[in-house]
Nucleic acid binder design. Structure first.
Length: 341
DNA sequence: CCAATATAAAGCAGGGATCT
DNA sequence: AGATCCCTGCTTTATATTGG
C-alpha cells in the first residue's frame, strides 16, 4: 500500500490527559507540500493529486521561502480566511474552478508589505496555553496555508518520531519565516477550553493528537482524533427523491424554504419502507403538490415524490451554507423530540 | 468453522466547467 | 438552458481477512 496522509478519526469524546495536545480544526482542504533539492514545489492533495495549478500563490509562497525552508515535506491545510474563520465554501470555489484565475476567489497580490504582526501573537511553543484569538486575529482574508506537521526534513524521514518532536522541528523551521499567509497551527494544552471556544465561535471542531504518536498512513490508529461541532436542526421532510426508481434521499424544508436533501442516516430497511409507501401512494392514485413556491434548482431533473403532509425530522450537519442548504446533512430521528428511529 | 474485525467498494451531496 | 461529467468528502454496505 502506498502513502496516504495521516487522517484524524471521528470521535464524539474529547480525550483528556497529559499525553494529548489539541489544535483547531482548520476547515479547508488537506495539502502536502514537497520541496525538493532544486527548489521545485509540489502540492499534493489528500488523494495525492497535484494541486499546484489550483493554488499558484501557495506554490509561489513556498518558492519564495525555499532558501529558509530547504528540501522538506510539509503537511497542513489550505484554507480561505474570511476575516473571522475559515470558509470551506470559498476553498471549494477555488477547487472547482481548477485554477486561481477566476473572480469568485481570485489570487491576490502578495501582501508582504503589510505589517507582519502575525508572529508576535502566534503561538511558538508546543505546549503554550494561549487563546485561539492570538493565532486567528492576525490573519487577513484570503487563501492561507496552515501547517501542522513535518514528515521529511532535508534527507531525513521524521515519520517515526513522536508528533511533538516533529511539531517542534516544524516550528523551528517555519516560525522564523511564517507570515500572514503561511504559519503553523498552534497546539493547546487544554482541550476542553479549546472546544468551548470552538463552539462559541462556530468553528468546525478540534483535533486531538497524542504527543508520542508516530505518523501513520490513513485512519488505522487512535492517535489523531477529531471532534466536530454539529448544527442540530428540526426540519420538515416534504418529499422523497428517487434514483433509478428507488427511494434514495429525503427533501428537507426549513422555514418554508428548500434546505437540501438528506441520505446519510437512512439504511437499506428504511429506504425499502419508503419504497413501500411510495407504491401505496401510487396504488391509491393520489399525487400531492410540490410544497415550494418554485421548484428548487437542485431538484431540476430529479424524480421526487411529494408527501401529503410534512414529516418533522431532526437532522444534523456541519453548517447552513449561504444559499440555505445544510452541509453534510445526516438524519438523526423522526419527529422533533429526538425519538429514536 | 464461524464470528469479529479490517479493508474495499459503492452511493450520495454539492458546485463548477464543459459540451450539446 | 439542460444534461453530464468531474472531484472530494462523507457514510453505509459489501467483501476479505484475521483470530478464537
Amino acid at each position: 500500500m502506498e502513502f496516504e496522509p495521516m487522517a484524524p478519526v471521528t470521535d464524539p469524546c474529547l480525550p483528556a490527559g497529559e499525553e494529548w495536545t489539541f489544535q483547531l480544526k482548520w476547515d479547508g482542504v488537506r495539502m502536502l507540500a514537497q520541496l525538493d533539492e532544486a527548489g521545485t514545489i509540489k502540492l499534493w492533495s489528500r488523494k495525492l493529486l497535484l494541486k499546484n495549478s489550483v493554488y499558484p500563490e501557495v506554490e509561489q509562497l513556498l518558492k519564495d521561502k525555499f532558501d529558509a525552508l530547504g528540501p522538506c515535506l510539509l503537511d497542513g491545510e489550505v484554507i480561505y480566511w474570511d476575516g473571522e474563520r475559515p470558509s470551506f465554501q470559498k476553498v471549494l470555489q477555488r477547487e472547482r474552478s481548477g485554477s486561481g484565475s477566476h473572480s469568485a476567489c481570485p489570487v491576490e497580490p502578495d501582501d508582504d508589505t503589510r505589517p507582519d504582526h502575525a508572529n508576535s501573537g502566534r503561538n511558538n511553543s508546543p505546549t503554550a496555553a494561549l487563546t485561539p484569538e492570538a493565532e486567528t486575529t492576525p490573519v487577513p482574508p484570503g487563501i492561507r496555508y496552515v501547517l501542522f506537521d513535518l514528515l521529511l526534513d532535508g534527507g531525513t524521514d521524521l515519520r517515526d518520531l513522536p508528533f511533538e518532536q516533529r511539531y517542534s522541528r516544524l516550528l523551528g523551521k517555519v516560525a522564523p519565516v511564517s507570515d500572514n499567509r503561511l504559519f503553523v497551527a498552534a497546539c493547546y494544552a487544554d482541550g476542553q477550553a479549546l472546544w468551548n471556544w470552538v463552539e462559541e465561535q462556530h468553528w468546525e471542531g478540534v483535533v486531538s493528537k497524542r504527543r508520542t504518536s508516530i505518523y501513520r498512513s490513513g485512519k488505522k490508529h487512535r492517535d489523531w482524533l477529531k471532534k466536530k461541532t454539529a448544527v442540530i436542526l428540526d426540519v420538515d421532510i416534504v418529499g422523497i427523491k428517487q434514483r433509478d426508481g428507488r427511494a434514495a434521499s429525503l427533501v428537507m424544508r426549513l422555514d418554508g424554504l428548500f434546505a437540501g436533501s438528506v441520505s446519510l442516516g437512512l439504511n437499506g430497511a428504511m429506504l425499502q419502507a419508503l419504497d413501500g409507501a411510495i407504491a401505496q401512494m401510487a396504488d391509491s392514485g393520489q399525487q400531492w403538490p410540490m410544497p415550494f413556491d418554485n421548484l428548487p434548482a437542485e431538484l431540476k431533473g430529479e424524480r421526487v415524490i411529494w408527501l401529503p403532509a410534512p414529516m418533522p425530522c431532526r437532522v444534523t450537519g456541519l453548517e447552513i451554507t449561504s444559499n440555505g442548504l445544510l452541509r453534510h446533512p445526516k438524519l438523526v430521528s423522526f419527529g422533533s423530540s429526538g425519538a429514536a428511529l
